[in-house]
Design a protein around this nucleic acid. Structure first.
Lengths: 212, 212
DNA sequence: CGAATCTTTGATAAGGATCAACGCGCGTGG
DNA sequence: CCACGCGCGTTGATCCTTATCAAAGATTCG
């Protein structure tokens, strides 16, 4: 039983966090599991969160990463369709789903905001599907870097908060391929790597063309 | 200039169909293109529609298929982010997007229905991403058959309204791989093929397990 | 400082793509 | 009515991208 199993077990015993509160999660801590009742949804206050699906044989697909300000865990049905885990130590605000009904009843604009939120998430999921279905490894990694750069304060150097395994599972690749692709991009002077987690986008234009 | 180019060109000249009307589209006719103003959205009255993205080098990813009753073309932004084309001859009802605002203003429940619609579409897109990212060719094809069976009236024999190329571009594969996978499934007695477009799901359980 | 985890690199294998050719079904025009 | 042509589907041979297996750095943290 590894570290992750321990926190997952703890999660099963304690249940989901109390709604309305701010909670801290250590790295890799499970926030909710696939199949859990979707009574709450969440907003990232600090840190990075991933939502993912595990297949029976251990394969994992990461659906999305969420950073400060992002809302996640709002579902179409009664249960969470993906798991959510802390990529880094994170502070998360939880909300009661049933409070949404009250808010939409009073506030007309709020309904429309909710709709807009869902549509934006949909657009992102669709782009992700195109990436997964019809892009090569280099194109996938380039697209990921360009995407993540938008979240990074510093414009030239971006800080990858997640592991290579996370990136691989987001892009539908293996760690080795992701690593090799980074090396390839570096050899071709598209990026530099001050350290494994810090990537300087040396040639943003060519990266962008790759991820076209 | 092939047949499809001709209708695409025609579409560019004539513009999008008038909103509020029922329109018929012949097979492969472009309903709207990526980048077109999303002034209208649509409902399938009859037939099958696909939404897809074309990459610069001709690769295509099909986002979704829509059958009678399905709504498509509603966007987060001002433009359509995918193209829509008739898979079969189709009758399509178009609606003005700005009429939505009026409907949501008057009718409270309608806003929530819109939200629910978007969330369901999101859930489907997410499942599609898992399929594309982490599934083998057999698993993809099995999942597609199980999925499409839900749309077929007859329970044992399903009728594929789309070409192998469509299926391939939906699953992130090539035509040849799709064809070979069908043959493989038939050899292993999971399906039978009375004809290329009619598939009998002989062993639905094993198909379902594959698409788990 | 040492153990565990993460990352990189190398060697090899495999799944799916690509290239090529043939068959089938269907509509059209002679 | 038949023959031809064309789009679609299947199958075969080969290639290539990415996965898998293995092991050696690098980094982090107790």
């Amino acid at each position: 039983m590894n570290n992750l199993d321990v926190v997952a077990e703890e999660h099963r015993r304690l249940g989901p966090p109390v709604a309305g509160s701010v909670l801290d999660f250590v790295q890799n801590r499970v926030i909710y599991g696939e199949g859990d009742d979707a009574n709450s949804f969440y907003k990232v206050a600090l840190g990075v969160v991933r939502t993912c699906r595990f297949l029976s044989d251990g394969r994992r697909q990461i659906d999305a990463f969420y950073v400060a300000g992002d809302v996640f865990g709002l579902e179409a049905g009664a249960e969470h369709s993906f798991s959510a885990e802390a990529v880094t130590g994170s502070s998360i605000v939880s909300y009661r789903r049933r409070d949404l009904a009250a808010l939409t009843a009073n506030n007309e604009g709020f309904s429309q905001q909710l709709f807009a939120y869902a549509m934006q998430r949909l657009a992102r999921a669709q782009e992700h599907a195109v990436l997964l279905g019809r892009r090569s490894a280099v194109e996938k990694v380039a697209a990921f870097l360009i995407d993540w750069a938008a979240y990074s304060p510093e414009t030239t150097i971006i800080v990858l908060e997640m592991t290579r395994q996370d990136i691989a599972d987001y892009l539908g690749l293996t760690v080795e391929t992701v690593s090799r692709t980074f090396s390839h991009l570096e050899r071709n002077a598209l990026i530099e790597r001050p350290s494994a987690r810090q990537i300087r986008l040396t040639d943003r234009k060519r990266l962008h063309d790759l991820s076209s």
